[in-house]
């Protein structure tokens, strides 16, 4: 008999698993490398600020109480703007998914609006809504709206048609079919669309605050940037990153709760 050996394993992979500590480890490693580099002089202070200095600046900001006066207005702008944009986006997206006439009318319009950099329209929003909060809400809402619409009607289109036929074959009402079959079926797609939309909302938050805001993370970053104060710049950027992580965690939590049936 010829020599025998075990058949090599070549399956596995392509199945995401929860390994939260890996992400933390990557963060810590990157920060340690930068800290080491700046202390050794391999990375000059002009290229990157030292992480411990950034931390010290952050603690100053916190103690002075200014952190909250920057963070709270930003959070409320983000919340109001994103809530308006996402709600409108989901509603219009579902309508596009359900009604051919609305689809025919609105899909080209959405396609035309999508690629416009919303920041370019900021002056327009200022004219329409004034220099106050309203124009900031509008910018964020508008930027969140288009990606949400596209994700939502795509998700509605992808709902298994045999399930809808099943609903019809049991004479379920139109309303029941929409709320009990179409919407739950579209939920995974809507939530993953929200991940992208909300990240865009954070980007637009900063853009909105860079124009005419006294307080806000964006205003803070703009001020630090114009002074080339890298420590403060990085404090601002870090806060934005943390905000992004927070939002993504919240969506992950919602997915876990709403989509527990996926196992």
């Amino acid at each position: 008999m010829a020599d025998s050996r075990e058949v090599a394993f070549r399956g596995g992979g392509f199945a995401p698993q929860a390994k939260p500590w890996v992400g933390v480890l990557v963060f810590i490693t990157v920060i340690c490398i930068i800290e080491y580099g700046t202390r050794q002089g391999i990375i000059s202070n002009l290229t990157l600020p030292r992480p411990t200095d950034v931390l010290a600046t952050f603690l100053d900001l916190w103690r002075s109480g200014l952190l909250w006066s920057h963070l709270l207005p930003s959070l409320s702008r983000l919340f109001v703007g994103a809530a308006l944009g996402a709600t409108a986006g989901i509603c219009i997206g579902v309508l596009i998914g359900l009604f051919s006439l609305i689809r025919a009318g609105l899909v080209p319009l959405v396609a035309a609006i999508f690629p416009i950099p919303k920041i370019a329209l900021l002056p327009l929003f200022v004219i329409w809504f004034g220099i106050d909060e309203a124009s900031k809400y509008a910018l964020i809402a508008f930027g969140t709206f288009t990606p949400t619409v596209v994700a939502t009607y795509g998700a509605v289109d992808n709902v298994d048609r045999t399930l809808i036929r099943m609903g019809q074959s049991f004479s379920l009402s139109w309303f029941s079919i929409v709320t009990k079959i179409v919407l739950p079926g579209a939920m995974p797609g809507i939530l993953s669309g929200l991940r992208i939309s909300l990240a865009i909302a954070i980007i637009l938050l900063v853009a909105a605050e860079m124009l005419g805001a006294e307080y806000g993370i964006g205003a803070y970053i703009l001020e630090a940037g114009s002074l080339y104060d890298l420590e403060r710049l990085f404090v601002g950027v870090t806060i934005l990153s943390l905000l992004g992580v927070l939002v993504s965690t919240l969506i992950g939590y919602t997915e876990k709760r709403l989509l527990s049936w996926r196992g």
Binding site: L163, P184, W261
Partner: peptide, 13 residues
């Protein structure tokens, strides 16, 4: 008139 489908057509959620 009630159907039983080949692919079951159960709501997974």
């Amino acid at each position: 008139l009630t159907y039983v489908f080949q692919d079951f057509a159960l709501l997974p959620w």
